[in-house]
Amino acid sequence: MKILSQTPPPSGEGSTSDRLRDCALLILGHGSTENPDSSQPSWDHAETIAKSGRFGSVHCAFWKEEPSFRQIWPMIEEREIYVVPNFISEGYFTRQVLPRELELTGHTTSRDGRTVHYCDPVGVHPAMTGLLIKRAKEILDSSVRPEDTSLIIVGHGTDLNTHSTEAITAQVEAIRASGEPFARVLDAYMEEPPYIADWRTLTDSPHVVVVPFFISDALHSYQDIPVLLGIETEPTAAASQREVFRRNPYRFGERTLFYSSAIGTDPSLAEVIVDQVRYFDEHYRS
């Protein structure tokens, strides 16, 4: 399944890719001082993109890990830099924290001999809808029909960033509109209604598949959501967390539940990051 847009490359594509080889790509993540898995997807996607040789260099920087947003500029030697926030939605981080810490003043900032392009976050890319659908279908057993399955996209809710809730409802609408034959598609949250803990009453289909709309399998999707779903009795330790995803499906009487890892861990996110650069060039580059 091709995830990204099928539109043909714009004319002059060859020269664009030549130009990008002289540019750096900087991926921004949240990171964590407590959870070792939080920054891993950003590093994994950076590694994939670096291997493709499309940029002069590929870097990551984090709010809560090193290199920090404040340490990153001396590490980058290219004069033109594309910055892509590996965040799930527009909001407090992408509009306030990241521009402030990186000293960005708009779509493009020129300072100290550098030109920095600030792209949209990965979570708002139109390909995310297709990725959520792909992820949901991948983890269902081949014997399970989507028509007998409800798809729940789960988010945090009630945090600083109300846009994250809007981002999830927008995805749910888009999946419904896509004509995919799921019995129902709905949103649910950890800390506001509809609560993910109520998944049994929110849905009535024989099967339910839950995909977390998070960037990484950090505390929420490894530890908190499995407890809310009833597939773990208490938060598991970091090292054993991957087990949560290997034990699918979980049986609850006549019903089965399939639980996915966070959407941000999907390897296709590397392409989404690169596509945010292409989108920037087409829409914001003056």
Partner: peptide
């Protein structure tokens, strides 16, 4: 992460403490 680059930029007077 970044420790070498920070030193080089600081030593060259291109990176200033906050």
């Amino acid at each position: 992460p970044g420790v070498f680059a920070t030193w080089i930029a600081y030593a060259a007077g291109r990176h200033h403490p906050t």
